[in-house]
């Protein structure tokens, strides 16, 4: 009997693996969770875009109210697709949006905003090697972070913000934090 059980072992191991494979089909191996959740926003003192009229982006700007930080760049193709959504959010005025112009020439960044519209309350430039973006654990653009009134990162969103993920995920979190 004991010997027979030993012969069952391979198929049992395989069934175990099968469970993992099945689960794996519904996981995204490219989605990397952020380790910065609930931690304060990184120390930063980013210069302003030329001619935009603000004073750039500093860590203390995140204190006092819930905000959304958006990583973008004039070179970023997906950002163009995301932009109309950000413009709409600005018009709705639910939450202030700060922009970080990542790995970009500030002049190009400003021209890009003039062309596509400017949804941001404050914008800071983060030229290569993008130290602030690395401090945020950014891997690509666009990426967005929800920061609470104490200036702590509460949620990371990778990729384009669209109607669906805004309604289903981002907005509820922001509403909750704003209470």
């Amino acid at each position: 009997m004991k010997r027979r059980l030993a012969y069952l072992l391979p198929v049992l191991v395989f069934l175990g693996l099968l469970g993992f494979f099945f689960r794996g089909l519904f996981l995204d191996p490219k989605a990397i969770p952020s380790v910065l959740i609930d931690r304060p926003v990184p120390q930063m003192d980013l210069a302003a875009l030329p001619g935009r009229g603000d004073t750039g982006l500093k860590s203390e700007h995140f204190k006092g109210q819930v905000s959304l930080v958006n990583i973008f760049g004039s070179w970023c193709v997906s950002c163009v697709a995301e932009h109309p959504m950000l413009m709409r959010l600005k018009a709705e005025g639910v939450v202030p949006i700060h922009g970080i112009d990542w790995r970009d020439d500030p002049v190009q960044g400003m021209l890009w905003l003039q062309k596509n519209g400017d949804p941001y309350t404050r914008v800071g430039t983060d030229p290569p090697p993008g130290r602030t973006a690395v401090d945020f654990g950014v891997t690509g653009a666009p990426e967005s972070f929800i920061v609470d009134a104490e200036g702590r990162i509460r949620y990371k969103h990778v990729g384009i913000i669209d109607e669906r993920n805004w309604r289903q995920t981002l907005l509820p979190i922001i509403k909750e934090l704003q209470k």
């Binding site: 010997r3 027979r4 012969y7 069952l8 391979p10 198929v11 395989f14 069934l15 099968l18």
Partner: peptide, 14 residues
């Protein structure tokens, strides 16, 4: 393929 053959193995190999 793998599950079926390993099951067959479990019953016939002993």
């Amino acid at each position: 393929v793998a599950g079926g053959s390993l099951t067959l193995y479990a019953f016939r190999a002993p």
